[in-house]
Amino acid sequence: MNQRLTPATALMLVVPPLLWAGNAVVGRMVNAMVPPITLNFLRWAIALLILLPLAGQVYRPGSGLGAHWRRFAILGLLGVGMYNALQYLALQSSTPINVTLVAASMPVWMLLIGWLFFRASVSRTQVAGAALSVAGVLVVLSRGQWQQLLVLRLVPGDLFMVLATIAWSVYSWLLLGRKEPESIRADWAAFLLAQVSFGVLWSGAFAAAEWVWTDARIDWSWGLGAALLYVAVGPAIIAFRCWGAGVQRVGPNIAAFFNNLTPLFAAMMSSAFLGETPHAYHAVAFALIVGGIVLSSRTR
């Protein structure tokens, strides 16, 4: 694993937060059309159908999928079945600003989990980078007015987002395990399909429980269909591909800082699609977040 952050790797790691910001915007748009956990199941079911022609060989005998099913089941649970389902659940009782604020703690969780369970060393520059990057996110969330952070109140949705962030941090560290056959590891589509295959089972079980225990319903429309196609191709397949490759190149600790670009991209998309005018604090936040990424990527 190369710990140097090259321009190509940086560009690769910028793609996921950009697409995930779009996922948040689209998720809010269809919130009244489809239940949150069902939305997560549908997006990954579509992603599985798209991946099948690209990597269907993983289902052949001897591919290694069966021999390493436990690893892929865990990756599928954490990255596919849990993270977005918990995020969508969080938005049912928490505000977007609270959810984004909790998600901004990912670099801290990534450093902590790596140090506790994966024997990863944590440098002072990484800690400083984490603080600088989180400060940039806080600038966006507070709209440049720090007193706005003092009126935040925690609700059950915030706990869901904490669990989601921890799940994603563990998932990212497990990507470095390299315990699967090289035939699967070397083919990004096969590696993703192996995870999604189990993730769809997990998310399907969660969605079934949602329909049993709630008054879930779906209001089908062409708009919902387009939204499902986007969240399946962009935030799911493309973002996971770029994130996995980036993590393998520079490690979870450095990659985690790029996740903090998501609130900034979300603010930019709000300006483009909702007519909100950009402010000076967006530039300040961008400088702080990028500064945290650069600082954290320095070798000791």
Rank of each mutant, 00 (worst) to 15 (best):
208 A>F: 12
47 A>F: 12
124 R>F: 11
29 M>E: 15
92 Q>A: 07
131 A>K: 03
297 S>I: 08
5 L>H: 10
43 R>F: 05
112 L>M: 15
62 G>N: 12
232 A>W: 12
80 V>C: 07
71 R>Q: 12
83 Y>D: 01
249 R>T: 08
220 W>T: 11
197 S>Y: 05
252 P>Y: 00
206 F>G: 05
49 L>H: 03
76 G>C: 07
130 A>L: 09
181 P>G: 03
37 I>P: 05
171 Y>R: 14
279 H>C: 00
158 D>S: 09
203 S>E: 08
4 R>W: 02
180 E>I: 08
161 M>R: 06
271 S>L: 04
156 P>H: 06
210 E>G: 07
176 L>M: 14
191 F>Y: 15
128 A>C: 07
279 H>F: 00
85 A>K: 08
29 M>K: 03
32 A>W: 04
204 G>K: 05
188 W>M: 09
24 A>F: 08
152 L>C: 06
36 P>E: 11
246 G>H: 10
275 G>E: 01
111 L>K: 00
151 V>A: 12
183 S>P: 02
234 G>I: 02
106 M>E: 12
120 A>T: 14
243 W>D: 11
293 I>V: 14
205 A>T: 11
163 L>I: 12
35 P>E: 14
268 M>L: 15
251 G>Y: 04
204 G>A: 07
174 L>I: 06
60 R>L: 15
42 L>D: 07
249 R>L: 10
195 Q>W: 02
281 Y>D: 00
2 N>L: 08
74 I>W: 07
297 S>G: 09
160 F>Q: 06
177 G>C: 03
281 Y>N: 01
243 W>T: 13
175 L>V: 13
62 G>D: 08
39 L>A: 15
9 T>R: 05
171 Y>K: 10
217 R>T: 14
284 V>Y: 07
133 S>W: 05
141 L>V: 14
186 A>I: 00
202 W>N: 05
180 E>T: 14
113 I>Q: 03
1 M>R: 09
209 A>S: 09
215 D>Q: 14
29 M>Q: 13
124 R>C: 00
46 I>A: 14
87 Q>E: 01
40 N>V: 11
177 G>F: 09
229 L>D: 02
164 A>G: 11
74 I>K: 01
18 L>C: 09
237 I>G: 05
1 M>A: 13
94 S>H: 03
130 A>W: 03
278 P>M: 07
259 N>Q: 13
122 V>M: 12
156 P>W: 10
84 N>Q: 15
82 M>Y: 01
247 V>I: 15
100 T>C: 00
43 R>E: 00
78 L>W: 01
